[in-house]
Amino acid sequence: MASRQEILAAVIDIVRSHRPEAGEVGEASRFDEDLAVDSATAMDLVMEIEDRYDLDIPLNALADLRTVGDLADLVHRLLVERGA
C-alpha cells in the first residue's frame, strides 16, 4: 500500500497539473484561499486521484477538506480501511 508520504507527493503532483498557475503547492496549501480551486476543478482532480488509487472518494468526505494534506490523509485512510 502507498505510504502517506507517497500519497501526499502524488496529490501535490495532481493539484499542480490542475492549477499550473497556482505557484507553490505544499501540504498546508489551502484549496480555496491559496490555490483558488473551484468546485469543478476539485471534482476533476478527485476523479484523477480515484483512478490512480482505484478507489471512490464520497462527496460527503470532501466537504471537510481544507488543505492538500487533508486530501492526502483522506486517501490514506480510505486505502487503510480497504486494507489494500
Partner: peptide, 10 residues
C-alpha cells in the same frame, strides 16, 4: 443526495 444523508459517489 445531500439531504438524504447517503454516501454519495459521482
Amino acid at each position: 443526495c445531500r439531504l438524504s444523508g447517503a454516501t454519495v459517489i459521482r
